[in-house]
């Protein structure tokens, strides 16, 4: 399985290169203001404002559940099962996730998203700089098509739980980062919901700078840390 994932990552990277082409430099340039803004903390209000504006503009989107911590995620999952939400029979889980993985690969081929599969869990990673406007929870226009495609697949595979986690780097005020990560997660959740994914299956959570995947001391590391991770798992009685 590892080989496949690695293979897939490679494919994703190649796809990224092909899509972005010579835009690699501008992309890096785009990150700088994001970082700088975080550093002085001032544009925090803007970001909050943007998020607020999103909330106010689409009132029903508030329905996407924002989890406070991992325990809350587990509780939500259990709650769904207890309520009799659509679920996968235990002996079909492998098949379900294999087919779902294949569908996601098929639909997301060429899109700027990294995909990993580990056991029953599929993780999609959206890089912050590409998925969102700078210092904003607003979804970048380039990412809309990706999320639409993703939404379509997830709508069909409705026995899955989608946990969207927002992450930031360690630069800037903690509170700001926490809030930005939550709003970005909620943004993605709402977009998926708009594409027909049942709200009950969507959980948003913001981790702020707490779960870095790369070194925050380098700009490259910080760019990697600014991301949204989308975790798809089967809803099944464990």
């Amino acid at each position: 399985m590892n080989a496949i994932i690695r293979h897939n990552m490679l494919a994703a990277i190649i796809a990224t290169l092909l899509l972005t082409g010579c835009n690699i430099m501008p992309t890096q340039g785009e990150r700088a203001p994001d970082e700088a803004a975080n550093a002085n903390g001032e544009p925090a209000r803007d970001a909050r404002d943007t998020a607020h504006r999103d909330d106010s503009h689409a009132a029903p989107r508030n329905a996407v559940y924002l989890a406070r911590d991992d325990d809350a995620v587990s509780a939500r999952r259990q709650h769904l099962l207890d309520e009799g939400h659509e679920s996968v029979a235990l002996d079909r889980v492998g098949f379900y996730m294999d087919v779902l993985t294949a569908r996601l690969r098929q639909e997301l081929a060429g899109h700027d998203v990294e995909m990993e599969r580990e056991g029953r869990i599929i993780t999609l990673i959206f890089p912050g700089a590409k998925a969102f406007e700078t210092n904003s929870a607003e979804i970048h226009p380039d990412m809309v098509a990706t999320l639409d495609a993703l939404g379509q697949v997830l709508e069909e595979y409705d026995a899955s739980l989608v946990t969207i986690a927002g992450h930031t780097d360690s630069a800037g005020a903690r509170g700001y980062n926490q809030h930005l990560s939550e709003q970005r997660a909620l943004s993605v959740g709402r977009h998926l919901h708009d594409n027909g994914v049942g709200e009950a299956r969507i959980i948003a959570i913001g981790y702020g700078p707490d779960r870095p995947i790369a070194d925050n001391d380098t700009s490259h590391g910080r760019a990697l840390n600014r991301r949204v991770e989308l975790r798809v798992e089967p809803l099944t009685a464990t």
Binding site: I4, H7, N8, A11, D91, R92, V93, G94, F95, D98, T101, A102, R103, L104, R105, Q106, E107, A109
Partner: peptide, 11 residues
């Protein structure tokens, strides 16, 4: 079947 032999990048 519970486990696929291959999931190709094409899907």
């Amino acid at each position: 079947p519970p486990q696929a032999s291959r999931i190709y990048d094409s899907g």
